[in-house]
Structure formats: structure tokens, C-alpha cells
């Protein structure tokens, strides 16, 4: 079942306690072997960074999961854009928050644009926009069965 859609409505905030383990797990399982995601000595001495940092694949995964936890799995994400403004490190209490920016109904789906922020306290870590398609109703054909030429994200 679709969530209630209203312009400027806010998604529930999600808090993630970031740890050394979660950053390394995210990097290794996304097959990213760069040392700034697992080697704190390298990150500080060579990377000029405060600690190891969360890689972009993990951030993409967290944002996508935040959206589909809200929308339900029948929704289909078409486009994800994000820019990283400051690093996410072990010990950070990371909050994901989002707001509905646009709602564009089409005959068999509804495109929704979400503005999402990843913040640590008052500090903006990452700003994101996600374009996600939701079925019009539970009886609508699955969005995942669309042919390539009918999927224009």
C-alpha cells in the first residue's frame, strides 16, 4: 500500500549510529577496497581526513533503503542524485530526513521527487534527490514489469 502523498509532507526521520564496523562492512560488501574506508592510519596521514569515511555506495544504499522503507517495495526508484558535503565517520549519529518535493501522476504510476538530507547534529553530510515511481493502486500492474521503452526515469 502506498504511503499518504502530500506536497511538502515529511518522511519519518531515521537515526543510524555509525560505527567503524558499519563503515568497513559497507565498503567491503560493496567491493570498495580503497583504504580511506577501512584504514584509519592511512585516512588520517595520507587522506588528510579525520577518520575512515563512509563510501558513496553505502550512502546510496542507505538513501535507497530509507526511501523504500517509506514507500514499500512495490515502488521503483528511477533516479538518485547526491552530493557529499562533509565526511561521515565512526561515532556519528546520522539522521536521514526527507520531504516530498513534487508529485506527478501518470496513467499507471505516480512519480514522486524526494529531497533527502543526511545530517550529523547541525552538520550537513549529504544532500540527495530521489525520483521514485509508485503504483497508482494495489491493483496496478507491477512497475517492475515495465518494458525498457516504458521506463523513463
Amino acid at each position: 500500500m502506498n504511503p499518504t502523498l502530500a506536497l511538502h509532507a515529511r518522511l519519518p526521520t531515521r537515526r543510524i549510529e555509525v560505527t567503524t564496523k558499519s563503515i568497513i562492512m559497507g565498503a567491503v560488501t560493496s567491493r570498495d577496497w580503497a583504504p580511506l574506508h577501512h584504514d584509519v592510519v592511512w585516512a588520517k596521514s595520507e587522506g588528510n581526513l579525520p577518520n575512515i569515511i563512509m563510501n558513496n555506495y553505502t550512502q546510496a544504499g542507505l538513501i535507497n533503503a530509507y526511501v523504500t522503507d517509506w514507500s514499500g517495495p512495490a515502488a521503483r526508484i528511477g533516479r538518485l542524485r547526491f552530493s557529499m558535503r562533509s565526511p561521515i565517520c565512526p561515532g556519528d549519529a546520522l539522521d536521514l530526513s526527507g520531504v516530498i518535493e513534487t508529485i506527478d501522476p501518470e496513467p499507471e504510476l505516480i512519480w514522486v521527487s524526494l529531497a533527502i538530507e543526511l545530517t550529523v547534529g547541525d552538520r550537513l553530510a549529504t544532500r540527495s534527490t530521489v525520483r521514485v515511481a509508485l503504483p497508482v493502486s494495489e491493483q496496478s500492474p507491477s512497475l517492475w514489469q515495465r518494458r525498457a521503452d516504458a521506463w523513463q526515469p
Binding site: 580511506l36 595520507e46 587522506g47 588528510n48 569515511i53 563510501n55 558513496n56 546510496a60 521503483r76 526508484i77 528511477g78 533516479r79 538518485l80 542524485r81 547526491f82 552530493s83 557529499m84 517492475w144 525498457a148 521506463w151 526515469p153
Partner: peptide
């Protein structure tokens, strides 16, 4: 440049 970081990403998803 010994170091490099990703600053922004845009992904368009098609067939899973």
C-alpha cells in the same frame, strides 16, 4: 594526486 574523493553522484536505474 595521491588522494581522491567522490563529491557527487547521479544514478539512473533501469533493468535490475
Amino acid at each position: 594526486y595521491p588522494n581522491g574523493i567522490v563529491t557527487s553522484v547521479e544514478m539512473t536505474y533501469h533493468e535490475p
